[in-house]
């Protein structure tokens, strides 16, 4: 597998502000690479550097074996870009904007383009006849998405592409993106919608304060964290549970007991649980959300667990 995006020790300073502070990123052919991080972590700065819209203060970067700053024009023939929060020309209709952007990118086969545009317009339920200033956030986003997907590209740079889309349209986006990637394209998907990343991405890089703090497949990342094990207390004494090998952070919460175990050592816990003949057993692997939160600020993994539990209970309650 060859490398599509390769960035080493990328730094970007705006005066004293360090937008990127030694970022390393590798994206290989044919993958959808999730690019996760909160607002202001440096996702958009990275993508703008990959596009040659901004120049890195230091560090090296190649995209499709080219330097994005000096080879922008040649490179852009193979790239489709969708920014988050698309701004349109107020006096151009959505359809005109789609045609303009597609023509700028280069239409090799007009018949195929027309068919593709028609298909996407329908799939995204988009009305191309309205003027730019009348579209809602989600509809403006559709213009950029349709323009990006209507002509073939080798690399899709997607910067929070589904901002403002409803869940139905998000599903359409996932389907269409999966299709072009299945045909051999590569995508870098910056997002903070974790379910989207979980469903789409092969590998994930988590960025924090201008550096990549974690990168790997979702399975790799899960190994680094703990799995939650919970079961009905049902007559068991706390003392019986204290010494389960491999268990941590035991909590008795009303009728239920729960603890966490290293994901790699989960099998060591199971024989003891079997001996205790626990009932109502649930084993929950860490969600991406927990992986994500475990890398961030004041929110500990524990908060994430509680949030998730609360959400689950309220779902059951309904």
């Amino acid at each position: 597998m060859s490398t599509v995006i390769s960035a080493q020790d990328l730094r970007k300073y705006y005066g004293r502000t360090r937008a990127l502070d030694g970022l390393d990123l590798t994206v290989t052919t044919g993958e959808i690479h999730g690019f996760l991080g909160p607002n202001g972590a440096g996702k958009s700065t990275t993508i703008r550097i990959l596009l040659g819209l901004a120049r890195a203060t230091s560090g090296s970067v190649t995209v499709l074996d080219r330097n994005p700053w000096t080879d922008a024009v040649a490179l852009h023939r193979k790239i489709a870009y969708v920014p988050g929060g698309v701004a349109l020309w107020p006096t151009l209709t959505g359809g005109e904007a789609i045609d303009l952007l597609s023509r700028l990118r280069g239409i090799d086969d007009p018949v195929q383009y027309a068919a593709r545009r028609e298909h996407l317009t329908e799939a995204f339920q988009f009305d191309p006849s309205r003027k730019g200033h009348t579209y809602s956030t989600g509809n403006r986003q559709k213009v950029a998405l349709i323009a990006a997907l209507a002509t073939p590209a080798s690399l899709y740079l997607l910067d929070e592409p589904t901002a403002g889309l409803d869940p139905l349209m998000e599903a359409v986006f996932r389907r269409e993106l999966s299709a072009v990637v299945a045909d051999g394209a590569t995508a870098l998907l910056s997002s903070h919608i974790l379910s989207e990343v979980e469903q789409l991405c092969d590998r994930v890089s988590i960025i924090r304060a201008g550096r990549i703090v974690e990168t790997g497949t979702l399975a790799d990342l899960r190994h680094l964290t703990r799995t939650e094990v919970a079961f009905s207390l049902d007559g068991l004494a706390e003392a019986d549970l204290r010494d389960i090998p491999g268990s941590h952070d035991l909590v008795i919460d009303g009728p239920r007991a729960r603890f966490t175990a290293d994901s790699d050592e989960l099998v060591d816990v199971l024989p003891t649980l079997a001996q205790l003949r626990v009932r109502g057993l649930t084993v929950t692997p860490p969600s991406l959300e927990e992986l994500f939160l475990s890398h961030y600020g004041d929110l500990s993994t524990d908060v994430a667990r509680q949030t998730r539990r609360a959400a689950r209970h309220s779902r059951v309650g309904r």
């Binding site: 870009y81 698309v86 349109l88 020309w89 952007l101 700028l104 740079l157």
Partner: peptide, 12 residues
Amino acid sequence: VGGELVLATPVS
């Protein structure tokens, strides 16, 4: 507006 979108296409 769309300057960034246009400059992300093969336009120098």
